[in-house]
């Protein structure tokens, strides 16, 4: 375990957000986009498909003052606040990734309580404001790998899930943790789509996965309160798993003895397993899992086993056939 990976020095919000870096990136994108557009119009192959890629990340990294938590432990620059907050999946609002930002703008995140119950010694209901102060808030720069083949680097704030679970004292019989997201069809248009899914969104972990240090309960992003479109007021960040495992807008956490049915295993068990671990060797019918497109970069990169967190989590799955338990 590497402490650097998880915990960054506490710093003021104003220091965290290097706006000039977002701007330089957008300019890069625009320039790249314009040249691609021109390339398309004359129907010629852009020869810079792979060679131009390292520039934005490298530039951003080199300009960062030391200690500002906007690179991950591999040295990759965090994506901009704009990228992170305008492009993500949140099926409660839409299956489109660009629509979520707008559709979630009216979503009410206050007041909010999270019930923690099931096989625990001290079932409790937590007010969101208490949760923000009860546990030490940490800054963690995590890679997020979507099952759809794109990825980002995101500076989250939050606290270790293990701290919350320890506070309610799991009983010996507890083996799984079930996370239930909010059901509010009047504010979440995606939940009105009667042909699609069974709401509310449910995700789950094995208890030992949930107790792993990497598992983070997220309350903030880039030193700001978590925006509604990213799962406010409370979501998970499980960086070794595909993004869909990190439930958003959580209202209920239940410890169980049996493996819970989840949103995705119910909707399509052939494509989405219970574990959802990032694994370049387990294929998906629609999206490449061997490589990924880091948002803001031009060329693809190889997807890493457990999204690069192998040293922290591989022990959890020792002896398991990951091609079966995907």
């Amino acid at each position: 375990m590497n402490a650097r990976r998880r915990t960054w020095p506490q710093i003021a919000a104003s220091e965290i957000t290097p706006e000039h870096i977002y701007r330089s990136r957008r300019q890069f994108l625009r320039a790249a986009g314009a040249s691609i557009g021109a390339g398309l119009l004359v129907a010629c192959a852009p020869s810079d498909g792979s060679s131009a890629a390292p520039t934005p990340a490298a530039d951003a990294t080199s300009r960062l003052p030391y200690g500002v938590g906007t690179v991950d432990e591999l040295g990759k620059a965090a994506n901009s606040f704009e990228q992170i907050t305008t492009y993500n999946n949140y099926y409660e609002f839409s299956t489109g990734k660009e629509e979520v930002h707008t559709l979630a703008s009216g979503f009410k995140t206050e007041p909010w309580t999270v019930a923690v119950d099931g096989l625990v010694g001290k079932p409790q209901s937590f007010d969101i404001d208490d949760l923000r102060t009860m546990f030490d808030q940490e800054e963690r720069v995590y890679r997020l790998r979507c099952v759809e083949g794109w990825s980002m680097v995101i500076p989250w704030q939050g606290f270790a899930l293990s701290k919350l679970l320890k506070a309610v004292e799991p009983s010996a019989a507890a083996k799984f943790v079930r996370f239930e997201s909010v059901s509010r069809p009047e504010e979440m248009p995606g939940q009105n789509d009667i042909f699609s899914f069974q709401w509310p969104y449910v995700e789950a972990l094995r208890l030992d996965e949930a107790m792993n240090d990497l598992a983070l309960v997220v309350t903030g992003l880039y030193g700001k309160p978590l925006p509604a479109q990213n799962g406010a007021p409370l979501r998970l960040a499980l960086p070794w798993k595909y993004g869909f495992k990190s439930a958003k807008a959580i209202v209920k956490i239940t410890l169980t003895a049996e493996q819970p049915a989840t949103f995705w295993t119910t909707a399509n068990a052939a494509e989405y397993g219970f574990y959802g671990n990032v694994n370049p060797d387990v294929d998906h019918p629609r999206w490449s899992q061997r490589s990924e497109r880091r948002i803001g970069e031009l060329s693809r990169q190889r997807t890493l086993m457990f999204n690069g967190y192998e040293s922290s989590v591989a022990a959890l799955y020792q002896g398991m056939d990951l091609a079966v338990n995907y």
Partner: peptide, 26 residues
């Protein structure tokens, strides 16, 4: 559609995953 794609690309109106956008819009 090609003209609109070119305009949106030049004006930076594509999403942050612009390769995905161009793939869909062709």
């Amino acid at each position: 559609p090609l003209a609109l794609l070119a305009v949106d690309t030049a004006l930076d109106n594509l999403s942050v995953n612009f390769i995905q956008d161009i793939t869909e819009r062709t």
